[in-house]
Design a protein around this nucleic acid. Structure first.
Length: 644
RNA sequence: GCCGAUGUAGCUCAAAGGUAGAGCAACUGACUUGUAAUCAGUAGGUUGCGAGUUCGAUUCUCGCCAUCGGCUCCA
């Protein structure tokens, strides 16, 4: 090793002694807000030493890398505070997540929100103490021994899973943690943080394991950035679809049927408009709609595989495990039925309505049937996780050689719909074979590969979602975030070679050979319920004209113009618009305010001036008003009747 | 299902071991109104449900149900 090395900082080479610390190597570039460095592309601590030529870039506290380091260090600080306040608490893992971090603990008793202020206070003390954060490397066995002596069983388990022979440990004051790093140079660099919540979480995410106690928090480079983030979250809460649903009279929930929305008249309009929209697309894309039963004999579910793979999520008509045939008991005829959780098995009977040939394929069968799923109580969440729903479901029965084209067709539909509805960023995943599955491993590998190629062909970037496929086949999943950035799966395209086999579906090929069709399961909106939930959060309840439950409201200024206002409302209603007249004995300001809060797109104000000239004063939601002839208003509204 | 929290009028929230109060909404009346709240009055609650402790529970304890934040699971 030579005594001198060359470091290149921000493109400027410099000769320095070997063994120099990163901080000194950065020299002038090491400003007050620099907390780490990228050395040859890898993030390292300021206190690491350099023994060979290297390229360095400073990492500022407010850069994405810097924030990640700060949050990770804040998680450590929190763990230190927790262990000093609650002796006997073991640490487990504490990663950074989007906008923050968490740390999972195994405490003598679970934490509650009341513990958080105390922990925050301790963290502030530790930060102020300016404890140096030091990195040491030790052999793996030694680390395991150290943590075992400390009674940290979880850390030992983590160390046992690390393949490297040496592991790094970070110390700050009298506290230490196994960690890859890097971290801030000292605790004083942690100045803007907040603990945001507590939650239970299973060790390693497996419900068979112990329940740990998780504390969530967030941290930023400055107090201002933290404040701004907290304010944004507050704002996002006002877009919660559950709140909007109540405020806008769209739907309600009642313990009488948990997880099952009652769509009120206004909510039902949105629901039905979305269905109408999909029906128009179906005509364009060649789908035929069917209507199928709600309840089926268990025989169906046994054949489809739902009985073995999905029964825990199904509502059964009785607790008898019968097959739907009459048994000896007085109510025997009712036994052995279940509500459908999916449409697919029923659709095989539509396929089998006729002897099929290659000329019938692809056969595209759509169904808005209501589904029921016995979701676990803790999983329910407004409209986005319900026990009864309708999907814009369809099953494509096609020949194997038609699969690629059919997937492309449906991906194109996905792009059409989400573009029309204003969703710009879609995230795609490819879900592969789950533990509970039908069919062979090779078949799963092939079909998953086909879906991956389809995503590539259609220019949709994707990541794998291992083990998350449906039990009958791999899935393309399209995710859209809600107001709080929680991601929900909406569209899905699933490839299925198993269901046709189980129901022995066939078609006659053009060579006259009995052949097996392939089934593609797909939904574009996903479920109407979840889609409406996410749509409300995206728009804050400000829906496009064609979806707005109330499209226009006529506001009369006084009793003198009641007749004219009523006439306008009646004319627009006759033309098919959803219009109401507000003829109440109230001031205009009051009526405008109510219409604004109800998020009515068009407010049509009429007073004596307008009545005299057969005009209207149009106020667009949240915008200025303009006076125009009534006739012009009619054509204006007509232009917005359907989505572009 | 699991961990933690919450549950008071239609909605948003107060109060309190001696059977509850406000604002908005609803209803009635006055005001006849020009682009985000006119005024006055009336009515509305077995304090989620069920037990227990207590002279007395809506308040304390336990169980159940639901909801909220997560975990698990999923469209």
């Amino acid at each position: 090793m030579s005594a001198e090395i060359t470091v290149t900082v921000n493109g400027h080479p410099r000769t320095v002694p070997a063994g120099i610390r990163v901080r000194e190597a950065l020299d002038a570039a090491a400003g007050r807000d620099v907390i780490a460095a990228r050395v040859n592309g890898k993030l390292v601590d300021m206190n690491r030493t350099l023994d060979a030529d290297a390229t360095l870039e400073p990492v500022a506290a407010d850069s994405p890398d810097g924030l990640d380091i700060i949050r990770h260090s804040t998680a450590h600080l929190m763990a230190q505070a927790v262990q000093s306040l609650y002796p006997g608490t073991q640490v487990t893992i504490g990663p950074t997540i989007e906008d923050g971090f968490f740390y999972d603990f195994a405490p003598p008793r679970p934490f509650t929100v009341d513990d958080l202020p105390k922990i925050e206070q301790k963290m502030r003390e530790l930060a102020k103490a300016d404890l140096k954060v030091e990195r040491v490397e030790v052999p793996r066995a030694e680390a395991a021994e150290t943590f075992a002596r400390m009674g940290e069983r979880y850390k030992v388990e983590i160390i046992d899973g690390i393949p490297e022979e040496r592991v790094s440990i970070y110390r700050q004051g009298d506290w230490m943690d196994l960690c890859r790093g890097p971290h801030v140079p000292s605790t004083r660099y942690i100045r803007a943080f907040k603990l945001t919540g507590v939650a239970g979480a299973y060790w390693r995410g497996d419900e068979r394991n112990a329940m740990l106690s998780r504390i969530y928090g967030t941290a930023f480079a400055t107090k201002e950035a933290l404040e701004e983030h907290l304010k944004l979250i507050e704002l996002a809460r006002t877009r919660d679809h559950r709140k909007l649903g109540r405020e806008l009279d769209l739907f309600l929930f009642d313990p009488i049927s948990p997880g099952s929305p009652f769509f009120l008249p206004k909510g039902a309009i949105i629901y039905n408009e979305l269905i109408d929209y999909m029906r128009r697309l179906y005509r364009r894309y060649g789908f035929d709609e069917v209507i199928t039963p709600q309840v089926f004999r268990n025989d169906l579910w046994r054949t489809s595989g739902h009985w073995d793979n999905f029964r825990d999520n199904m509502f059964l008509t009785t607790d008898q495990e019968g097959d739907g045939r009459i048994d000896a008991s007085p109510d025997g005829w009712r036994h052995g039925y279940a509500f459908k959780p999916m449409n697919c098995p029923g659709h095989t009977f539509v396929y089998r309505a006729e002897k099929r040939s290659y000329r019938d394929l692809p056969l595209r069968i759509a169904d808005f049937g209501r589904l029921h799923r016995a979701e676990r109580s803790g999983a329910l969440h407004g409209l986005t996780r319900v026990r009864t729903m309708a999907q814009d479901d369809a099953h494509v029965f096609c020949a194997p050689e038609q699969v690629a084209a059919e997937i492309d067709l449906n991906l194109k539909m996905v792009r059409d719909v989400y573009e029309a509805l204003g969703f710009e960023r879609l995230e795609s995943k490819l879900a592969t074979m789950p533990e509970k599955h039908l069919g062979t491993v090779e078949l799963w590998r092939e079909t998953a590969a086909a879906l991956g190629q389809a995503l590539d062909r259609n220019g949709l970037p994707w990541v794998e979602n291992p083990g998350e496929g449906a039990f009958y086949g791999p899935k393309i999943e399209i995710y859209v975030p809600d107001a709080l950035k929680r991601k929900w799966q909406l569209a899905t395209i699933q490839l299925d070679y198993n269901m046709p086999e189980r129901f022995d579906l066939t078609y006659t090929s053009n060579a006259g050979v009995e052949s097996r069709p392939v089934m593609i399961h797909r939904a574009i909106l996903g479920s109407l319920e979840r889609f409406i939930g996410v749509l409300l959060e995206h728009t804050g309840g400000v829906l496009p004209f064609w979806l707005a439950p109330e499209q226009a409201r006529v506001l009369s200024l006084s009793e003198k113009v009641e007749a004219y206002a009523a006439e306008i409302a009646a004319t627009l209603k006759a033309k098919g618009f959803r219009v109401h007249a507000d003829l109440r004995n109230e001031k205009l300001g009051f009526k405008v305010r109510e219409a604004e809060l109800a998020k009515v797109p068009y407010m049509i104000v009429v007073g004596e001036r307008e009545a005299a000239t057969r005009e209207v004063s149009l106020r667009l939601r949240g915008a200025r008003n303009e006076t125009m002839p009534f006739e012009r208003l009619i054509s204006l509204l007509g232009d917005e009747r359907v989505p572009s």
